[in-house]
Design a protein around this nucleic acid. Structure first.
Length: 952
RNA sequence: GGGCGGUUAGUUCAGUUGGUUAGAACGCUACCUUGACAUGGUAGAGGUCACAGGUUCGAGUCCUGUACCGCCCACCA
């Protein structure tokens, strides 16, 4: 096969491997600025640089950081969409000549990864507790070495043009340094504290979770009504009631009750306030307290108070100085404080307690009760509000700065409606619990001096009783918060230092991502050059987890928001609306799709569907597959029909006497269809740019799809066939040039969307083209098309539209009378446009043009095509000699209706134009617009009247 | 409980500031094995733009209300 031929079938696998390897090897993914310095990063860009794209000083670098996928992750359709979008934007900006960087990386995903490795060890009957922290972490690192690059390999299959020489991992050395820097800085600014609070506890993972990590789901549960008897010690005299009935959704927590609360204004219970109750099963005396929090309308208006197991009760406990009795082990089993229930699982205990209360006659009833219950986002276990000592970040001050930046217009969400979601969350922000009781992650950079601690323990004892809720961390008490691992205690010089065993929330490293990946806290060149980044592309579900926190971190640590535009794309769902997920078994493996149809097909299909949430099924990928196939075959056609000579689109050709020579920027073109396709190309180029600028990737793709398929293939290529066969030498040669030129431009326009096939085809076209624009060694670095290089030609567009309508109209009539394709029909076309007439006569097959009608008379054996109505402003008629098909009655009615409509329109514009206020105040261009509309409407009215007259 | 989004062809969705005949893809019907492509071509059928009011010469588009669907947030036990 010659180097300029294409095989009859596109082999996506071969092409994809070939080009991706080459791109990466040649350093095309790296920012252009890298070539100016000898960096240590990856391969050098060896080959000569491409084209001069004009002054590059005006453009700031274009930078995206990848939302780091979990190291345990495998590419799912959500990743495929997210990264396709990022790649499109990256490639587009790179072609526009901007210094472009897409930073890739992977997240260590604390709990998720730990779970995976634990499961793996469980198969060998090993628990992490058995082997200890150090050994376990070795296993995790080993697992990471062996399996951690799956996702980045898969991103390569997708075509992602990330700068892999800058790939980062949230646990690598640099990022660990960043994490410590952030923690200590916040600590120094008084924004980090440790304290005993009710947090979300996952009894399975045995760790604290942040509020965002507890997913609330509606659950059909029970509301249990239980009698709490009034203590006999209070029963002197004659109490009106023997007991108070409380309502609870979690009866097992009653073991830790230390009060019952009622609303101070609740008449039913007022007299009981201050009295003592006898807590059933436990037989502890607890007081009745009054608290505004209690809603008299709910349940019985009396609430059991369990400060150690419920956030509200915790608050009440603080207000009333109640004791906190923790009745649960970290694994969710009742502890020794729970007396006879010691050792039982919380849900088991719930059942048993109800049975026991029933036996005592203290259980009233269980009512059905729908309420939201928190579930662990990793393992879906019901989380337990649990009292424990954790590290927190004070978020208010951070959120305020982020809000200020937003008010100053520094962050913009696309689509805009997410803005409010973001600001609302910031406004109601709560402190962030950042410590986790797992092993895989960044260990809290806090050390305790054993010696000082002993002394402190004694001091603390006295005060713990008073207020254990919160204590600051005076370093004098042997607590060391440091960037570098300390060797000895600064207070006493002791060397027995123990690091806090907790690790930090995974998001505590992710929120630093936009600057930690560029080298922070070191003042690196990358950081200086590439921060802040440009766009952030992500899914709605991590706006709180990640986006908002990154913005806060950026403002706090860098003094600048990390990115200015945030594009939130849709969620990928299965047909029927359910989110695609492995657990539901309704997911599609993108790698399978790539194997089967190619990465380009996958990307293009997903982007076409991405105007909002993406509803996927296997069949949906056929759109992209078919398109890729179409493109391949159109290219084959062009390459087969170029003739042997190399084409230079600038070269002049012999001019046709009849037609005007039109200068199309770079090109000089005569022939009407050629002028038309260039004009369409111009329009499409402009539109694609506009859509990409506003993140409307689906519209951009759709625009290109229809241009290629309908304009280029269906009309231009089809029209070129008779031209190549029987056109004049000049027409023929010009058409060949334009076929090539437009195809080459199409490749560049499509390259960001479907990088592989466009590179493959472009390389072949390049060899045939003498156009200097195409001299770069890869399409990746070829310049992005500029619509000004081939400006619009309104006249040509109008003429071809005329022709299209006429041809369609004739074909319509042909089908309706069942004419075989081979049969020529006689047609009369009426047009004053000589060019159109010429194209029609010379190149529209199977239609014999009889002549030209200047007046609208119809011979009886000619039938009028409905193409007449195709464009009310186009002054043409088509008649072909076939038996009757037009219904005059219908035509008359339609005309009358239209006439009435247009008359109303004219009336409206006229009244607007005669409105004094309007004429006086409206901007002149608006008035001109109205006048133009009026004249158009009058023309239209005339056309309809003429049409009507044909059928009177 | 609060907030947000949606309701347009058989299906999945576009529809920019109100304006000629509401578009596309898939599906469907008829014809076409035409030397780029049957993963194709030509043509066609198919819509009371959820419902009820309102503004306007004119509403899928703006306003008010209703119904249904979906999503997010939320410490009333």
């Amino acid at each position: 096969m010659s180097p300029t031929e294409l095989s009859s079938k596109y082999d996506s696998k071969e092409v994809e491997t070939k080009w991706y390897t080459l791109w990466e090897k040649n350093g095309y993914f790296r920012p252009q600025s890298d070539q100016n310095k000898s960096t240590v990063h990856g391969p050098q860009i060896t080959e000569k640089k491409t084209v001069d794209r004009g002054p590059s000083t005006v453009d700031s670098p274009y930078v995206i950081v990848i939302p780091p996928p979990n190291v345990t992750g495998i590419l799912h359709v959500g990743h495929a969409l997210n990264n396709s979008i990022q790649d499109i934007l990256t490639r587009w900006n790179r072609m526009k000549g901007r210094d472009t960087l897409w930073v890739p990386g992977v997240d260590h995903a604390g709990i998720a990864t730990q779970n995976v490795v634990e499961k793996k060890l469980a198969k060998e009957k090993i628990t992490r507790q058995q082997i200890g922290r150090e050994k376990f972490l070795e296993h995790v690192w080993k697992w990471k070495e062996e399996n951690g690059s799956t996702i980045t390999r898969q991103l390569r299959r997708l075509g992602a043009s990330c700068d892999w020489s800058r790939e980062r991992f949230t646990m690598d050395e640099g990022l660990s340094k960043a994490v410590r820097e952030a923690f200590v800085t916040l600590y120094e600014r008084g924004l980090i504290y440790q304290g005993d609070y009710i947090i979300n506890w996952c009894p399975r993972c045995q760790t604290a979770l942040s509020d965002e990590e507890a997913e609330h789901k509606e659950v059909e549960g029970g509301l249990y009504y239980i009698k709490y008897p009034i203590s006999v010690s209070e029963a002197k005299g004659s109490p009106v009631a023997q007991f108070i009935i409380v309502a609870t959704t979690r009866p097992e927590t009653m073991l830790g009750d230390t009060a019952v609360a009622v609303n101070p204004n609740d008449e039913r219970y007022k007299y009981l306030i201050g009295k003592k109750l006898l807590l059933p099963l436990v037989n502890r005396e607890i007081p009745v307290i009054a608290d505004e929090f209690v809603d008299p309308q709910f349940g019985t208006g009396a609430v059991k108070v369990t400060p150690a197991h419920d956030p509200n009760d915790f608050e009440m406990g603080n207000r009333h100085k109640l004791e906190r009795i923790n009745v649960m082990h970290p694994d969710g089993k009742i502890n020794e404080k729970g007396g006879p229930y010691n050792g039982m699982d919380r849900f088991e205990a719930r059942k048993k307690i109800i049975v026991d209360l029933e036996a005592l006659g203290l259980f009233v009833e269980k009512k059905k009760h729908k309420h939201a219950v928190g579930h662990c986002y990793r393992c879906a276990t019901i989380v337990e509000p649990y009292l424990s000592k954790q590290w927190f970040v004070k978020m208010k001050p951070l959120a305020e700065k982020a809000l200020k930046a937003h008010a100053a217009g520094k962050t913009k969400f696309y689509p805009d409606r997410w803005t409010k979601v973001y600001t609302n969350w910031l406004e109601g922000i709560r402190d962030w619990c950042i410590s986790r009781q797992i092993w895989w992650g960044h260990q809290v950079p806090v050390w305790y001096c054993q010696k000082c601690q002993e002394g402190r323990g004694k001091k603390e004892e006295g005060r713990e009783k008073k207020d254990a809720s919160l204590f600051s961390l005076p370093s004098s008490l042997g607590i060391i918060v440091a960037r570098e691992t300390p060797i000895k205690c600064p207070t006493c010089g002791g060397t027995d230092l123990q690091q806090d065993p907790d690790v930090l929330d995974t998001w505590f490293s992710s929120w630093l991502w936009p600057f930690s990946t560029l080298g922070w806290p070191n003042k690196t060149d990358d950081l200086k050059h590439f921060y802040p980044t440009s766009d952030l592309i992500t899914a709605p579900e991590i706006i709180f987890f990640w986006v908002a926190r990154m913005i806060m971190a950026g403002v706090e640590f860098m003094g600048e928001v990390p990115f200015s535009k945030i594009y939130i794309h849709g969620t990928v769902r299965a047909e029927g609306g359910l989110k695609m997920s492995k657990s539901l078994g309704n997911s599609i493996d993108p790698i399978e799709v790539i194997d089967e149809m190619g990465a380009d097909a996958l990307r293009f299909s997903m982007i076409m569907l991405s105007a909002q949430d993406v509803y996927l099924s296997r069949e949906k990928f056929e759109v992209g597959r078919n398109f890729v196939n179409k493109l391949w075959n159109a290219s084959r056609f062009v390459l087969m029909n170029l003739g042997s000579s190399t084409v230079d689109s600038r070269q002049s050709t012999e001019r046709n006497q009849d037609t005007e020579t039109v200068d199309h920027g770079l090109l000089t073109v005569d022939f009407l269809p050629n002028r038309w396709i260039l004009s369409r190309l111009s329009k499409v180029t402009e539109t694609v740019d506009k859509y990409l600028n506003e993140f409307s990737l689906a519209q951009a793709a759709s625009e290109l799809y229809h241009f290629v398929w309908n304009d280029y293939c269906d009309w231009f290529i089809e029209l070129s066939k008779p031209v190549l066969e029987k056109g004049s030498a000049a027409e023929k040669s010009e058409t060949q040039q334009i076929l090539l030129f437009v195809l080459e431009t199409i490749m560049r326009l499509l390259h960001p969307f479907i990088p592989f096939i466009t590179e493959e085809i472009w390389q072949k076209l390049k060899e045939l083209s003498a156009n200097s624009d195409q001299s770069s060694e890869t399409i990746m670095l070829a310049p992005w098309p500029k619509s000004s290089d081939f400006p619009r030609d309104a006249q040509a567009e109008k003429s071809i539209e005329w022709l299209q309508n006429a041809v369609s109209g004739i074909r319509d009539l042909r089908t309706r009378v069942n004419l075989p394709p081979s049969q020529t029909v006689q047609a009369v076309v009426a047009t004053a446009n000589q060019e159109v007439k010429k194209v029609f006569e010379a190149f529209i097959p199977q239609i014999k043009v009889l002549g030209r009608l200047d007046s609208l008379t119809i011979e009886s054996n000619f039938q009028k095509s409905k193409a007449y109505l195709g464009n009310a402003f186009a002054d043409f008629e088509v008649f072909i000699k076939i038996e009757g098909l037009v219904n005059p009655e219908e035509e008359r009615k339609r005309s009358q209706k239209k006439i009435a409509e247009v008359e109303g329109w004219i009336k409206g514009i006229t009244s607007k134009l005669s409105n004094e206020n309007f004429v006086k105040n409206a901007p002149s261009e608006i008035i001109d617009q109205e006048k133009l509309k009026l004249s158009d409407a009058q023309k239209l009215l005339k056309a309809y009247h003429e049409h009507l007259s044909l059928f009177q």
